[in-house]
Design a protein around this nucleic acid. Structure first.
Lengths: 360, 360
DNA sequence: CTGAAAGCGCTTACAG
DNA sequence: CTGAAAGCGCTTACAG
């Protein structure tokens, strides 16, 4: 005889209830709700009627237990005050939902997964993990792989050659910005760094320095903003208080560029771009706002998210395939925060962009 | 004899594997990972060693199946380009994680849950649903209740008296803004509406109109921005193109107020607040940026999120308790986008706020 | 196309 | 404190 239920409460209706009402087996109910399974139209009909009557919905957790597929993707994110990330999250979530995947969200103050958080990710049997935050220990990605869970890094890379990633053109973007500043006859460039150990910061700075050197410009002045508003404000004050202040600042992302621009204008009374050029990276929403009109190197949201979703699906299907680093192209979007060069400007798809001579 | 496994692939380690290695029963393994269960220290020790060695992690989905608790909360959100929501999401997710709940995120373009999305929410056996978006059919909340799933409305209410909600002081805020404008000797107020059928818009407008009437001011001019940037820009142009333009615009949220301010300044060449006062609602991050310095009625993030989490926990424990509508207080935060009244300004906790005479 | 049955990985009374 | 056993709600070979 069956014992008392483990926990009291109105028991939800299950497939057996539906089967009884429909006068078929529980297997038939299951097949009716499994896309592609073979059920006679008449059977399906009876089941659907009974299911509707009882308000039956298949239990996705029970299904996951046996299929070993939860259709849940963990997304780890931080810094949601940087508009780049909410945009990514909204697009990513929308696209995954359309493919019948659900997003389990993990946020952490500093963008790193604590051990208990990581344990939770694992316990929920997620089909894949998308790590979307600048700072994060590489150990984590390795742990996931060890547990057999596909990982994808979004907007960052790691040294581990076995971990796939999707990023923008960080190095190339940094280089383009240097060339753009040189073409605009700037003489004293500065670099406002993000989190120094992040791959985005490293690559953007590397490209920028290489580009400056190629153009015969001096090494950039430098201050660190750690990708935060407060950090960027302090770093800007630092740079603008130098005896010989820079005539251009490349900020490692738009989020900091906005703080930089506000400090330059309102605390130092500088005209942008007449007294100082400011360039960002990302092309987020606020970069386009009338008060900022930021010149910036874009990281195109939808191509990046599309690649991410595609990579996630491949990793789920073939967990041990070779890792792939996908780099999405961007453009130097020209608005009003930096002095214009004489050449290389063009209008493409309603946006003004800049390309070094010779590129098409 | 056991048959071939349903699906190939490296089988993850389960509690039986750990039990064998540790030389105990599977029950003992389960108890070791169940907080509060009774296990002898020596047994626990053996189990933990074996678990570590094998890389065992309890399967949360299997646990949910039997406990009927998934420890998953669905959060439905839209408009992540309005900075209010990412802030809410980050805080909510952080707080729920600290209580060992996970957030399953659902985003939809228009903030409403489509039928298939709703089906997914139900299939994942979430313990509760937080609906955080301005527009949303009330039918949804009813469906959830019918299915026995606790629902909480965040930043909106519905007519249904059985649905709990957490909101800011929308009506009171609208009233305070009207009083503030009157005290600042404005004569021609305007209201820039959000989504007209949303409860936030209805309540803010109602309070604003009541406050204007109480102060002897005329009915506001009016245009609809639908809580979007583009909508707010068009609505602002409409208002500022009137023969007798308003001398103050109350925008139903900060997101629109920023667009409004940019259009007023850059398209119409108006000085804010000398030529035109602009007031928002929410007190989001960008409202504080130097280029905007928005005067706005605050919806304090952490109190709202704390109440939400508390309400969710209560609803989970007592699903059929009486609904409660929690209203969180806010302040009229005074910055630089509206002309100042002579009286009622005070500095509290480093913020300048305004309160009508007589309030303390 | 259909049903009976095994099994996914757990929790939890129950009896010791 | 511990183990054997039932059962949570499904999917899916298998045999018909």
């Amino acid at each position: 005889m069956s014992r008392a239920p483990v926990r009291q409460g109105r028991r939800p209706v299950n497939a057996v209830d539906v089967a009884e009402l429909a006068g078929v087996s529980q297997s038939a109910v299951s097949r009716t709700f499994t896309p592609g399974a073979s059920v006679a139209p008449a059977t399906r009909d009876k089941v659907e009627k009974a299911a509707k009557k009882l308000g039956y919905r298949p239990n996705a957790l029970a299904r996951s237990l046996i299929t070993r597929r939860s259709r849940i993707v963990a997304v780890v994110m931080a810094y949601l005050d940087n508009q780049f990330y909410p945009g990514v999250l909204e697009a990513l979530s929308g696209k995954l939902q359309a493919l019948d995947y659900q997003v389990l969200l993990f946020t952490s103050p500093d963008g790193s997964l604590s051990d208990p958080m990581f344990e939770q990710v694992m316990r929920y049997q997620v089909d894949a993990v998308v790590l979307a935050s600048a700072s994060l220990s590489s150990a984590l990605a390795r742990e996931c792989r060890k547990a057999g869970v596909p990982v994808l890094l979004f907007n960052r890379t790691t040294d581990d050659p076995d971990v796939s990633s999707v990023t923008g053109s960080n190095e190339l973007g940094g280089r383009a910005i240097a060339a753009f500043l040189a073409a605009g006859r700037h003489k004293r460039p500065a670099y406002l760094a993000g989190i120094e150990i992040s791959s985005t910061n490293r690559d953007r700075e590397r490209g920028f320095r290489a580009g400056l050197a190629a153009a015969g410009l001096p090494e950039p002045l430098r201050a660190v903003g750690n990708y935060t508003l407060a950090g960027a404000e302090a770093a800007t004050r630092e740079l603008l208080s130098l005896r010989k202040r820079p005539d251009a600042i490349f900020c490692a992302n738009d989020h900091m560029a906005i703080a930089c621009l506000d400090v330059a204008r309102h605390d130092f009374g500088l005209r942008v771009p007449d007294d100082l050029s400011i360039i960002g990276f990302d092309d987020t929403g606020p970069a386009q706002w009338r008060s900022y009109q930021l010149t910036t190197f874009s990281q195109p949201l939808h191509p990046m998210v599309d690649s991410t979703v595609e990579a996630v699906r491949e990793l789920i299907d073939q967990p041990y395939q070779k890792a792939r680093r996908t780099v999405i192209g961007g453009e130097l979007v020209v608005r009003a925060s930096a002095r214009l060069p004489k050449q290389g400007l063009m209008d493409i798809n309603g946006r003004r962009v800049w390309r070094a001579n010779g590129e098409s």
